Simulated scan of single mutants.
Amino acid sequence: MSQKQDNATAYWKENLRYLAILLAIWFIVSFGFGILLVDQLNEIKLGGFKLGFWFAQQGSIYVFVILIFVYIRLMNKLDKKYGLDD
């Protein structure tokens, strides 16, 4: 394999690793906190609302938006690392 192809393979492996980690975080927050752990989290109040309810209604959306910005930052660093930034 050429060096260019090796770099492309390494780039996509790292990209997929980032995606897997970020999607796992989103899954844990949306499904885990919003559905599975809702009763335990409802014992805690956040702004007058039960925390489990908040994660199910708002928190998972906020976390998703934050993860988008984290992904952008990670991809910008990855692009620079492999010389793909313009």
Rank of each mutant, 00 (worst) to 15 (best):
L19S: 11
V65M: 09
F27L: 15
K81D: 03
K4H: 03
K13M: 13
A8E: 08
I72N: 09
A56M: 00
K45C: 06
L84N: 12
N7H: 11
A10L: 14
F64Y: 15
Y11T: 02
E43D: 09
F53E: 05
Q58A: 12
F31I: 04
Q57H: 05
Y82A: 02
L16S: 10
R17E: 08
F64K: 14
G59I: 01
S2F: 03
G32D: 07
T9F: 02
I28K: 11
K77G: 04
S30P: 00
L67Y: 11
E14F: 06
Y71V: 04
F31M: 07
G48D: 07
K80A: 10
Q40W: 10
G52E: 00
G47S: 08
V70R: 09
L46Y: 15
K81I: 00
D79S: 13
F49C: 03
S60V: 01
N42Q: 03
Q40H: 06
G32S: 12
N15K: 15
I35H: 12
L19T: 12
L16M: 08
Q3Y: 05
A56Q: 02
A20W: 14
K80H: 09
F27P: 04
F49E: 13
L22Y: 13
I72H: 05
A56W: 00
L74I: 06
N7C: 02
T9C: 05
L23A: 14
Q58L: 10
N42I: 02
G52S: 04
A8M: 04
I68E: 08
D86Y: 15
Q40E: 13
A56T: 02
G59L: 04
E43F: 07
I44V: 15
K4N: 03
F53G: 02
A20K: 13
W12V: 08
K50Y: 02
G47V: 11
M75G: 07
L51H: 05
K80G: 05
K77Q: 11
L36H: 11
W26S: 12
K45M: 11
Y82E: 04
Q3C: 01
Y11W: 07
L74Y: 15
I21S: 06
G48S: 05
I44W: 09
S2N: 06
R17T: 12
R73F: 15
F69P: 11
F69E: 09
L51P: 07
N42A: 06
F27T: 14
G59A: 07
D6F: 01
N42M: 04
L36C: 08
L37S: 13
F64P: 01
L23F: 15
I68A: 11
F55W: 06
K77V: 07
V38P: 01
G52A: 01
K50F: 02
L19R: 10
V65F: 14
L36Y: 15
S30I: 01
A24D: 09
A56I: 00
F49V: 02
L78F: 12
W54F: 03
A24V: 13
N76G: 03
G47F: 11
K4G: 02
N15D: 09
L78Y: 14
S2R: 03
Q40G: 04
L16W: 09
G83P: 01
K80N: 07
M1Q: 05
M75R: 12
L22V: 11
K13D: 05
G32W: 05
A8R: 07
D85N: 11
K13Y: 10
F27Q: 12
K81H: 10
V38S: 03
W54H: 01
S30Q: 10
G48T: 11
E14C: 08
F49M: 12
I28T: 13
G47A: 10
S30H: 09
